[in-house]
Amino acid sequence: MSRFAALGRVARCQLRDVARSRWVIAYALFFAAITDALIRFGGGGERAMLSLVDIVLFVVPLVTLVFGTTYLYNAREFVELILAQPVRRGAVFGGLYLGLAVPLSLGFAAGVGLPFLFHGATDAYAQLGALVGVGVLLTLVFSAVALLIAIRADDRLRGVALAIGAWLLMAVVYDGLVLLAVSLFADYPLERPLLAAMLANPVDLARVALLLRFDTAALLGYTGAVLRQVLGGPAGMLLALGALVLWAVAPLALAARAFARRDF
């Protein structure tokens, strides 16, 4: 069996497993319900999208991390079984990752995208595309982080705790530290260090990239001008995209290495 055929087969097994667990369906329905409600009651498509930005940045990393770690612990016996076969570990790992990231991404994209298409609520397809694209990238990033945590931590409880800890760190604590640094170093020009700080955290990066797309008037001030200069425009979108992809690839490589060396 070729390497990719094996990868595909593992991914397919996992996809079926994930689909059977119905979690992904619930995840998609959750986004569909929220999006639908926002379009209906939130005052139009553009405004619904701006509200969705908050929800996406909050829910996608959290759910992906928690679901991803438990997913791998649940697949433990399957992994042990399959590793007993003459299959390369790389293929198994790739299959595991795709089996996690693909259904979550699809569930998210369908949940957010379909209500907009159904209502015909927006002409701003570029913005909708940015929202869905960034959400999918976040799913890819945090799927990789979840795998890394689950492979490194033996104990299921510890793994889930680590996942939630990682989420807290990136979604909440990090920004607190940034704010602390901003107030401590208020006398210095901070725009560029802050920009670096935003690039160094996928949640912040996703947030800033989306806010620039959504044209919030407050971001047209001086700080916004610096952000726009670097992250606005097509080149800026590419930079943000590249940084997010890097954020997916780095933990994925670490997780792959840990998976290859691990004694099951």
């Binding site: 979604a171 920004d175 607190g176 700080t223």
Partner: peptide, 8 residues
């Protein structure tokens, strides 16, 4: 202002 709309 870069922290606009962040959870924190």
């Amino acid at each position: 202002l870069v922290l606009l709309r962040s959870l924190f």
